[in-house]
Design a protein around this nucleic acid. Structure first.
Lengths: 211, 211
DNA sequence: GTCTATATATTGATAGAC
DNA sequence: GTCTATCAATATATAGAC
């Protein structure tokens, strides 16, 4: 939303739709090869248009990449934002895990785009992580710590708890190829996400239930 | 080791050392930008030599990348191989986690190189995952299932258990920049791996202790 | 808005002097 | 073995016709 404001806002509906087609194609490409490894040609082909035509809508490679990145962190943290101090501790954590896993299932390319950025050290992105992201995580860590103090949750490091949830859920998007290779055709089908959901639910339920 | 056999073995010790310098530099670069996003120029500069000089030792970009990839899976799976059916179930799992986390701490670039390959769909690598890796995981999954049948471990899906261990431990290498950004300078120092080890140990101890 | 043509820079790789 | 020079291919981006 705020990302749109960076470039002159699209005038017509057609323009906006074309831009969406391009961003969609770019997400395919960038999420696989990262920024440096992707070419405008690849994106143009994926978008079904010529390179100059694509560059009519976005004046540079960076201009295609930036809005994708800008919208992703917001989407990605939505499930964490929903974690409420009012709810039941274990239920809140478990449904956070479920929602996060659903995001990996439904938006794997976004997850991989993000992962690519992390791998190269998040240039021009670190500030946001260190401010916006850190603030949100600090806030939620406090809630979790509160739950532990009330005896509703086993005591543990809330930051590493959150990291472990990020890791386990995003793994199914980022390392999907490996997951499928190991599970094989029999079990790698569509229910790998259900199996993962069951496993993670149990792991964290038993792992976090106060003793 | 078997990777070396693919190209004519180096004659002198000097040659071998130069190749090592190059591979070391290449690991730095490839692990950040992936294969396509890295340039021979970058690698040459990191290795402190000219591009033609580097290409005297490795005749192509692919030839630098391949041996790095070949040696990595072996190293990476070493801790899993060590998991023994003779040992105590919970201890075996916990020390597997500890060793795997140590690898993320000690070989973060290798982890990121691997992650980069997964993100682009592991071209020319999938076969190995589907055969060698799957075979090893199948074997260890059987052991784990055996432990569960004996009541030494809480029942759960052994494959997703292994995935979750991979995910949580590799996260500290692959997403290090994010971990550091969130923890901040106070806690992001050198003990983030110790904190992670403590957290994971507790999570899996409680999560996997039979009820 | 979309195309062909092209300018300009970067990249993978080689030739050949030393 | 290492260097300078360079080639051919690819890449980002623009010009200008339609």
């Amino acid at each position: 939303m705020s990302a749109k404001a960076q470039r002159p806002r699209p005038k017509t509906r057609i323009q906006r739709e074309k831009q969406e087609v391009i961003l969609e194609a770019a997400l395919d490409v960038f999420s696989q090869f990262g920024f440096r490894g992707s070419t405008i040609d690849q994106i143009a082909e994926a978008a079904g248009m010529s390179k100059p035509n694509l560059l009519y809508y976005f004046k540079s490679k960076e201009d295609i990449h930036a809005p994708l990145l800008a919208r992703i962190l917001d989407t990605w943290l939505e499930p964490l934002r929903e974690m409420s101090p009012e709810g039941d501790a274990l239920s809140e954590i478990r449904s956070y895990i479920r929602r996060k896993l659903e995001m990996s299932r439904d938006f794997p390319r976004e997850s991989r785009l993000f992962a690519n950025e992390m791998l190269r050290g998040a240039p021009g992105f670190y500030e946001i992580l260190h401010t916006d992201l850190k603030t949100l995580v600090d806030e939620k860590a406090l809630i979790i710590t509160g739950w532990m103090a009330e005896g509703r949750l086993a005591r543990c490091d809330p930051y590493h708890l959150i990291f472990s949830i990020w890791a386990t859920t995003q793994h199914y998007a980022d390392f999907d190829i490996q997951v499928q290779a190991v599970l094989g055709s029999e079990r790698g089908g569509d229910n790998r996400f259900e199996d993962a959901a069951l496993f993670l639910d149990q792991l964290y339920l038993h792992g976090l239930t106060p003793k």
